[in-house]
Design a protein around this nucleic acid. Structure first.
Lengths: 347, 347
DNA sequence: CTAAGTTCTGGGAGCGCTCCCAAAGGAGCT
DNA sequence: AGCTCCTTTGGGAGCGCTCCCAGAACTTAG
């Protein structure tokens, strides 16, 4: 007997038409105050809620944005980076009254399944792609399917792409200059994977900074896959070459790197100074406290959502790239305090 | 000219009806091999993808499950716990070819907006609720709206609820017994918030274990909000009361607690032994290595999805609770190695 | 060759909404 | 009162799919 609760039924009970109820629900103008009150009363009384799928079908937009995260072997996703990013994106979505769909894939099989799900019309309006690999196949698929998207990172396979990124090059460069300023002579680098734009940029930014300062890195370069274990391994290897200042491409790897320094019975920052990238690990978490190039991860996520939203609203025609500045946050591992307590803040 | 790509259009091009195309797309039987081949060829050629919203509307299910996470002031979400949980849930969803929608709310305003979005019909088929507070209002709303849900934790406001939880009591109890076995005399507790079921259970489990072992805790109890900072503060306070063994209710708080021990110029484990709960921080991350009651977070997330899926499929009628066992993983902070190198594994 | 059974195919109805146009109602002016 | 103009309301059409039943086509057996 209880008819299904839909616009028609609410209209029937309030003595108006489907259309009028729709107008009230969507807060459109041109509804008389009296009618509006009556309809709202019925809605409150019945607990009516509009049907999202029907809306999506009729209006051709879902109000859902997808966030795609690769998680190779599940390790990547443990990085606090993603928590922050999700938080930023999620905040922005809440503000826009939209919904966040999360797509995490662990391997190629997942990936292709997820791609085919993501590009389905009527599921998400657009997609934010993170941890973009160089020449990412995902991007080509999205483009083929005419699915609007924003990339977090610096995509390389096509120019006409909307993207949000932190200034990885500039941040890494400032780390190099900081080492030079502190008088370190034998810099080394633990770079993030070079199949990611962040890896490429942090590496080249650091090397540029060294060149600028007249320092040479010799063979003191290793690469790590973002994890603590990789940072530890890479630092253990590097220590054989007696570096006195190591730039580690992520906070997580830096935690492992510090561990390796301890295990080699060396002191940080006295023997080996460390600067990392991310600025995301709580300051108290590790001893000595980590000097790190901080990137505004949450803002990046937030901004990616806003950018995608403007794309969806058709407000943007030509590709746009947003780059957030980074900030070198000086704590203990860089050894700045050792050379006379100067307190630098480079950007 | 280019007609919209839908079932009808594919049918037209393949010389069959909408219904037949639908059968092919959904892999239903009773389609002749020849027809099937023809239709599949057209689909491949056109790049047709079914419209998710239309499907949802017609079939009355969306294939989307919502995961609701409160993130008070954004701090909570930084806990690696949620990364793991999401990863587990996400894996399970991929396996079921379903989509995960994430709802993170930071305050009451967000919360009510999110609740009203979540309970909308046609958006999600069901919801997984995490970090459940005692007497959680969210649960009442879901129930009112007839939205199927599974709770992670131990809900208390109603009995007929599907839930997945770790054995918080048992795990905490095993920590107490471990301290007793190692001959510690002055146990203390840094408990998680007592407005969560995990907080209540870890506290009572630890106290039960102490009672069993004939130990008394005196006034050596503090409460912390899951963060490193709270752990540090709580430990600093507790140290005035000279505890020799502290059970810390989460890994993150334990990291802060270890820091406080260092700052008080005390040694862990010699002066103060520490056992934490979660077993989620990478073993290398902290020195000395953390002894922790490990809970299988990823499995919890995975299982919650499966459980919700069976509920949605109507395979389960009466409420079901799944409890995962925990495991005390002995490393360095408990000081087990000090008393003769015994290597315990209690469950 | 026919009847009965099985497999395959087509299309009507409907999911609950938005979009849009037409018509009704009301206000303001001459 | 009559006209115009603006506000408010109603309902047809359609979004792309699933569900379901009826009928066509094909099998098999007698």
């Amino acid at each position: 007997m209880a008819a299904r609760l839909n616009l028609e039924e609410i209209g029937r009970r309030a003595g108006v038409s489907r259309s009028t109820v729709s107008r009230v629900v969507n807060g459109e103008p041109n509804v008389s105050a009296k009618t509006k009150r009556r309809v709202e009363a019925v809605i409150a009384e019945t607990g009516y809620r509009p049907h999202a799928a029907a809306r999506s079908l009729a209006s051709r937009q879902t109000g859902v944005i997808g966030l795609v995260i690769p998680s190779e072997a599940g390790t990547l996703f443990n990085d606090p980076y993603f928590g922050r990013l999700i938080l930023g994106a999620s905040d922005a979505m809440n503000g826009l009254d939209m919904t966040l769909a999360l797509f995490v894939f662990g391997d190629e099989i997942d990936e292709s399944a997820i791609i085919s799900r993501v590009v389905n019309p009527g599921l998400v309006d657009g997609v934010i792609v993170t941890a973009t690999r160089m020449a990412d196949p995902l991007i080509d698929h999205l483009r083929d399917a005419d699915m609007p998207f924003v990339v977090i990172g610096r995509p390389d396979n096509l120019s006409a792409v909307f993207s949000v990124d932190a200034d990885n090059r500039g941040g890494a460069r400032s780390a190099a200059l900081h080492f030079a300023q502190l008088g370190r002579q034998r810099p080394a680098l633990i770079a993030p994977p070079s199949n990611t734009s962040a890896g490429v940029d942090r590496r080249s930014g650091f090397l540029d900074g060294l060149a600028e300062a007249g320092l040479s890195i010799g063979g003191r370069i290793r690469e790590g896959d973002w994890t603590e274990a990789a940072g530890r391994r890479a630092m253990a290897e590097l220590l054989e070459r007696r570096p006195d200042a190591v730039f580690v491409g992520s906070d997580r790897m830096a935690v492992g790197a510090l561990q390796a320094i301890r295990e080699a019975d060396l002191r940080c920052p006295e023997d080996v100074a460390v600067v990392s990238f991310d600025g995301i690990i709580p300051a108290d978490m590790v001893v000595p406290r980590l000097t790190s190039v901080a990137q505004p991860v949450q803002e990046v996520g937030e901004r990616a959502v806003w950018l995608l939203k403007s794309v969806l609203d058709g407000q943007l025609t030509s590709a746009e790239s947003v780059v957030f500045p980074t900030e070198l946050v000086i704590r203990e591992t860089c050894g700045a305090a050792l050379v006379g307590g100067e307190r630098d803040r480079a950007s």
